[in-house]
Simulated assay, not measured.
Amino acid sequence: MPLGYLTPFASLAPLAPLVLPGVYAPQQDTALLADALCDEPLAPAAHVLDVGTGSGALALAAARRGTRVTAVDVSWPAVCTARLNARLARRPVRVLRGNLFDPVAGQSFDLILANPPYVPTPATETARRGRTRAWNAGGDGRLVLDRICRDAPQRLRPGGVLLMVHSALSGPAGTLEQLRAAGLKAAVARRRRIAYGPVLRAREGWLRERGMLASDDDREELVVIRAERPS
Rank of each mutant, 00 (worst) to 15 (best):
L18A: 07
A127R: 15
L176H: 10
D73Q: 06
A57M: 08
M212P: 04
Q27K: 04
G160L: 03
L200Q: 05
V23G: 06
A62F: 09
A134F: 12
A182E: 13
D151A: 11
D110P: 06
V95N: 06
L12Y: 01
E228F: 00
L58S: 06
R155V: 04
V223R: 05
R219Y: 05
Y196V: 01
G139A: 14
S11M: 00
L84F: 07
T126Q: 14
R208D: 11
L3M: 14
L200G: 03
G171S: 09
L179C: 11
A34P: 02
R157D: 04
D218H: 13
F101V: 08
L163G: 08
L111I: 10
R203Y: 14
S231G: 14
Q107E: 15
A227M: 08
G130V: 12
L169V: 12
T121K: 02
D50Q: 06
R226D: 07
G197E: 09
R90C: 13
V119N: 02
R157E: 11
S55W: 06
P8A: 15
G98D: 09
R90H: 13
R91F: 05
L111Y: 04
A181L: 10
V23A: 08
D216E: 15
T175Y: 01
A105Q: 13
L163F: 10
R128F: 03
A187E: 14
D217T: 14
L113N: 06
R128Y: 03
G98Q: 08
D146L: 00
A25T: 08
R133Y: 01
A63S: 13
R131D: 08
R192S: 11
Q178T: 04
E221L: 03
